[in-house]
């Protein structure tokens, strides 16, 4: 048993249901450690978005509790503190942008904290640089590409300097290039110590994460490294999920008696393995 201090976000026997609907999250217990990069996957309607909302305190559990840095998200008196620690990026970037200029939009969060102007400026510079939008700071959002808009939405939350970013399918509306951009930004953030919980249905992206949560019918089906999760094709198949390209390739190779060591599920590792094997 680990102590609760190891966890930045902790779910304990969480239940959740929308009014008039059946239970969406059913007895979910898990924890996000500081600095982790977690990918949350699962079929449509499995409760992924709901879980993202619960993690950021946007939704309150019907039973059980969610704690951020030891603070209960159901406690209204700490909701401000929770919002500053966990940023939630919604699926559609268009609906999250409040200002007609990149810079002004990023400033919205720190302005809400009523920080002095120089501090707001510093945070805006930091957030814009972190997502690589320096050259577009004067653009109105409707003249940005999908990937740029999503990076802007991320910057808007980074300006609050959260310990953790929760992203609800940030790449689902993007083309491959926009997806690469956003994933690049996330990896950079993780490298610099930000905790990231990303909901995704691109298995290739999930394979890049440090840990994978598999959710189905509101229940946690698996909580393990990508290598372990994607080495169990029967589980994913049962849930109607695909394998990441590298894991699929490993399967095809295995069918021809070329054994790829277990745990090779992302492209980089696969390339390393193949290069060594072919030499």
């Amino acid at each position: 048993m680990t102590s609760s201090n190891d966890y930045l976000i902790q779910f304990e026997h969480v239940f959740f249901a929308y009014p008039g609907g059946g239970s969406v999250i059913h007895d979910f217990s898990a924890g996000v450690r500081r600095g982790e990069f977690i990918a949350l996957i699962g079929p449509n309607g499995s409760g992924k978005s709901t879980l993202a909302g619960l993690a950021a305190g946007a939704l309150r559990p019907a039973a059980g509790w969610v704690k951020v840095d030891g603070m209960d998200t159901a406690d209204p008196s700490v909701i401000g503190a929770i919002r500053r620690r966990v940023g939630l990026v919604l699926q559609n970037p268009d609906n999250q942008l409040v200002a007609a200029r990149v810079e002004e939009d990023v400033a919205f969060g720190p302005e809400n904290l009523n920080l002095p102007s120089p501090e707001v400026r510093r945070r805006v510079e930091y957030a814009i640089a972190a997502v690589g939008l320096d050259r577009l700071r004067d653009r109105p959002p409707h003249l940005l590409s999908g990937g740029e808009k999503q990076r802007l939405a991320i910057a808007g939350l980074l300006a609050l300097e959260p310990s953790c970013l929760v992203l609800d399918e940030p790449t689902s509306m993007l083309d491959p290039r926009g997806r690469r951009e956003v994933l690049g930004v996330l990896k950079n953030l993780v490298a610099k110590g930000t905790t990231v919980l990303q909901v995704t249905h691109h298995m290739g992206e999930a394979a890049e994460a440090g840990r994978v949560w598999v959710l189905a019918e509101g229940k946690l089906q698996a909580d393990a490294s990508p290598g372990t999760v994607f080495s169990r094709p029967e589980l994913l198949q049962r849930l109607g999920l695909a394998l990441p390209p590298a894991a699929e390739l490993a399967g095809c190779l295995a069918a021809r008696d070329i054994n790829v060591p277990a745990g090779i599920v992302n492209l980089e590792d696969m390339v390393h393995f193949l290069c060594r094997a072919l030499k």
């Binding site: 946007a58 919002r83 609906n95 409040v98 969060g109 808007g156 939350l157 609050l160």
Partner: peptide, 10 residues
């Protein structure tokens, strides 16, 4: 969505 996003940004 916008209302939620604004609240999430404090």
């Amino acid at each position: 969505d916008l209302a939620l996003a604004m609240e999430l940004r404090c």
